[in-house]
Simulated scan of single mutants.
Amino acid sequence: MRLLTPILSVAALTIVAVLPWGLPTDDRFVLPLLPIVAIIYWTLDRDAWLPEWAIFLAGLMLDALTQGPLGYWALVYLIAYVVAVYCSNIRVETTAGQLGLFAGAIVAVTVFAWLAASIYFLELLAWEPYALGAAFALFGATALALVRGFFKSSGSPVRPARLTRGD
């Protein structure tokens, strides 16, 4: 089950993003950023397995089910994965540091999504819906970091060290 949890969580959040929640037009960018939080979270977790094909399929499914430009969210989700891979190379031990990595990654992905959509429509789009989506994604990342920090400090076993030979 540990192997399937990252894939299932990204798929579930993608389905949540597709559902008609009755949000105003400016607030609809909040939902597609939910899978991005999961993508970044699972990529930063060194023990989790989240393959690139699952991320691509989640974005493609979002594009197809929302009747948006085919490949837009697939590209944004893959960019989120790339940003998270680069962030995973940075060693951070504190919850504040992990939250900073989350914030930087979400802001970078949101700026990319805004620029890609602006290029697609050949005009600079309003940045406010993207900023609101990033704020909600940061709120979700903060909640996730606090819950994760709580479980780590509540007596749960510490992740074992990875012993490797050589460089």
Rank of each mutant, 00 (worst) to 15 (best):
D167Y: 14
Y86R: 10
A96G: 12
V158Y: 10
E93I: 14
Y72C: 00
A48M: 02
V92R: 11
V111I: 09
T95Y: 09
A74F: 12
G166P: 12
A143V: 15
V83F: 05
L31I: 14
A84Q: 03
G71F: 00
W21R: 11
A74C: 03
A143F: 14
V85H: 00
P20S: 01
V109F: 01
N89W: 07
R148C: 08
A80P: 01
E93G: 13
Y41W: 09
Y86E: 04
I106P: 03
V147T: 01
A64L: 13
V30I: 15
G97V: 04
E52R: 08
T164F: 12
S156F: 15
V10F: 00
D27I: 12
L122T: 11
I90D: 05
W21Q: 11
L19F: 15
Y86L: 14
V92M: 08
T110K: 08
L62T: 11
W127F: 13
A105S: 08
A108Q: 12
L57I: 13
W127I: 15
G149N: 09
P129I: 03
D47H: 12
Y72P: 03
L65K: 05
V10G: 04
P6T: 02
V82M: 09
Y86D: 04
G166Q: 10
L33D: 08
R28A: 05
F102I: 03
L124K: 03
A12M: 03
I39Y: 07
L31D: 05
L60P: 02
G149A: 13
L99W: 13
L78D: 08
L132W: 01
Q67W: 09
I7M: 08
I79S: 00
A145D: 08
L33P: 04
V109Y: 11
C87L: 15
F29T: 05
Y81V: 03
A105Q: 01
A135F: 04
A64N: 04
V76C: 02
I39M: 02
T66Y: 01
G133S: 07
A137P: 14
L33E: 00
F136C: 10
T25M: 10
L132R: 15
Q67H: 11
T43P: 03
V37T: 05
F56G: 06
E52M: 10
L132I: 14
W53H: 14
L23M: 09
F56T: 09
S156T: 05
A126P: 10
L122P: 04
R162W: 13
L146H: 13
D27N: 08
E123S: 15
W73N: 06
R162Y: 01
P32Q: 07
V10Q: 04
L138A: 09
S156I: 07
I79H: 00
I39E: 06
A105R: 07
P157W: 13
R91S: 14
R28T: 09
W73V: 01
T110W: 02
F136Q: 07
E93Q: 12
V37D: 00
A17W: 12
R46W: 07
L75H: 06
N89Y: 09
L8P: 00
S88N: 08
I40D: 06
F139A: 15
A116Q: 06
P20I: 06
S118Y: 05
P20Y: 04
T164P: 07
V76G: 07
P20E: 14
I40W: 05
G97M: 00
